[in-house]
Nucleic acid binder design. Structure first.
Lengths: 167, 167
DNA sequence: ACAAACTTTCATTTTTTTTTGAAACTTTAA
DNA sequence: TTAAAGTTTCAAAAAAAAATGAAAGTTTGT
């Protein structure tokens, strides 16, 4: 396989994977492109390589920076801005976990707590509802905490986790 | 909060969470509804409660059964089919993990392996590409294996994991 | 073997999400 | 202070995903 072909395949695959996990395709593709680029890339080049509009590039770069996984860089003597991706995978996974926890899990937990604490009048339906949502709340909270704990190791957390669970 | 209100809120929230993670809203809502129902529910009732069409209900119930997290039930003396959700959360998480690994992670790994093994001609760009995709392959493979290992405990795996990583 | 009761399929429509592109805005250098 | 070089915003358009509903299919009781 040619380098260019391989790069394109990687970008497409990463984009598809993003879609399946609720991240928009272009955002994932830009991220993929920056991940495998050995030097900072301009917006111009991103537009060109992915065949997307300026607006689309701008918005998704902003989103990636909000996630904390893409950085702006300034080159000496250059007017335009360049972009790089977080390339350390442990760090990348930590940042994605933290963001998704903050944006999606925590708000869901809040609702779970609310609905699991209604006063049940004691019909079987209500008792089951309270019981099940309480269990769900406990489960999600525990999972969220575990994720937090794991990624706290920061440096090489995945390798450390492997060691922990194998023994 | 009223029971009915709480139930509705839960279903809506679970549906929104599903969307954010790449699962279609209705599919997540049906799952939510079945999770908190103390007895099997007919397609008729699902349509009524979620205000969706027969076709939609049918297709998403099929999808949920393909995932192995919703079951068909037959009631004695009843022509129609009823549906229940897997209510054990450890089991639910295991099934979702396995399916997503099989459908999404494994195929992505295959591509990562392909693109990371091109013969680099030694330009800096190519060396970086091979290096980065190799690291990504190793990382994703390791993460996938960890998930597999964790969920192998099956019974109460989350609680067991908590114990493991805390000490 | 028939028809009633029920479920599935899939072409079409609707809704939602993403993308575009042009105008507004910002920054820098002369 | 101006204009050139660049970036951001957002209303409108396009694309993608999901939902509808009617026809086809299946099952069961008589």
């Amino acid at each position: 396989m040619e380098f260019k072909e391989a790069k394109n395949k990687f970008v497409q695959t990463w984009g598809a994977l993003g879609s399946q996990w609720g991240i928009n395709k272009t955002m994932a593709q830009i991220h993929a492109l920056l991940m495998v680029s050995h030097e900072p890339v301009s917006m111009e080049d991103i537009m060109e390589e992915l065949q997307i509009s300026r607006g689309n590039a701008s918005m998704n770069l902003r989103a990636l920076m909000d996630w904390g996984i893409v950085y702006k860089e300034y080159k000496a003597g250059e007017r335009r801005e360049f972009f790089t991706a977080e390339k350390d995978l442990d760090e990348l996974a930590v940042k994605i976990s933290r963001e998704r926890s903050k944006r999606e899990i925590k708000p869901a937990l809040k609702v779970l707590k609310e609905v699991s604490t209604i006063k049940s009048d004691g019909t079987e339906a209500e008792r089951h509802f309270v019981d099940q949502t309480t269990k769900l709340y406990d489960f999600v909270l525990k999972a969220d905490n575990v994720l937090d704990k794991i990624t706290e190791y920061k440096d090489n957390w995945l390798a450390k986790l492997v060691v922990k669970i194998m023994k």
